[in-house]
Design a protein around this nucleic acid. Structure first.
Lengths: 178, 178
DNA sequence: CCTGTACTGGACTATATAGTCCAGTACAAG
DNA sequence: CTTGTACTGGACTATATAGTCCAGTACAGG
């Protein structure tokens, strides 16, 4: 579903990829919508777990740069194709399945929250000015990331993702105290 | 297609919306893919025409703010639903129809180019520092816009779009000379 | 080993959707 | 008015895909 898109993925694709049969599929999921929602939940969990690993100890600008590098490097492996696992599903499902939309909205909120918490630790450590608003900065970083993913996916080139993230980081840098 | 998504839109939907018949449809388009590509081209043209109207005379930071306001206001009308006409198609089609992907990539490039040209006029007018890189700033603004669209679409709330654009504008502001 | 229960594979059905086709119609040219 | 041409509506077909069903199998409990 990540590669082909949710709607373009058939239950036969799922059956083949999972080496199971239709009856097993319908033993676990009432219909395709429910399967899709399960995929959304699982992916959201995976992404958040991964991001928590990068972000939970974030407390310096250097750490933010490492976070950026990891995301760019991961996306470079596929030349930007497929975009962000959450972003592409959000775009496709938001106006089609309200339950999925809400799950994705919560995931984005949590993800953004991880960044904001890191920025707050930077403030506590005295490296980020208290005049900075961690929540707003985090939303800006997330938007730069998602926009960067989309442009990179469309161009099959990660340069715009790098540029977007670097600009967002530059902005955070302007709030550093030392 | 903008509202339901490209893949979820059936030819019967198209027929009903256009008050035509299948034979007329197939008189103009060889198959659904060709129709989709025509939609992509047309939408890209419309968006670029609209944006050109806003951006071709841009030569001040104030103008950039008006541009931001117009986009936010337009998106607020539908509470963020459906996202950016180009962005949502880019996300859905990029890994499915390479021809559509290229058209969209060119449209994004042109759109970003309109912004960059405006920033260059700001430099010529002396209000934007020559140390600023208009092309990179334009990519950053476009990413903030697209990421903002996506977050707003997912949350059904335009606040993150405003926050993202404001942060990008703040960054541009830091390059102002007066 | 025997029996009952729960699960499995995959054939099958129903349906939505892309794509075809042709009788009928409008209309221009003579 | 007559004829020929191009176009139209919408019924029709083919096919992909979601969803159902049941005979067969594994396996636990006695």
């Amino acid at each position: 579903m990540y590669v082909k898109g949710v709607n373009a993925t058939t239950l036969d694709d799922v059956r083949a990829a999972s080496s199971t049969s239709k009856s097993q599929l319908y033993q676990h999921f009432a219909d395709k919508d429910e399967l899709v929602r399960a995929v959304v939940s699982r992916r959201a969990g995976q992404v958040l777990e991964r991001e928590q690993g990068y972000l939970e100890r974030l407390r310096s600008f250097r750490g933010l740069q490492r976070w950026r590098d990891a995301l760019v490097q991961r996306n470079a492996l596929q030349n930007g194709a497929y975009g962000c696992a959450l972003g592409s599903m959000a775009s496709e499902l938001s106006d089609q399945d309200d339950e999925a939309r809400q799950t994705l909205a919560e995931a984005f909120a949590e993800w953004t929250g991880l960044i904001a918490a890191g920025l707050r630790r930077m403030q506590d450590a005295g490296s980020l000015s208290n005049s900075a608003d961690p929540d707003k900065l985090a939303v800006g970083l997330m938007a730069a990331l998602q926009g960067g993913y989309l442009l990179a996916e469309t161009q099959h080139d990660i340069t715009p993702m790098e540029t977007a993230l670097d600009m967002a980081l530059d902005h955070v840098r302007s709030f550093l105290t030392r």
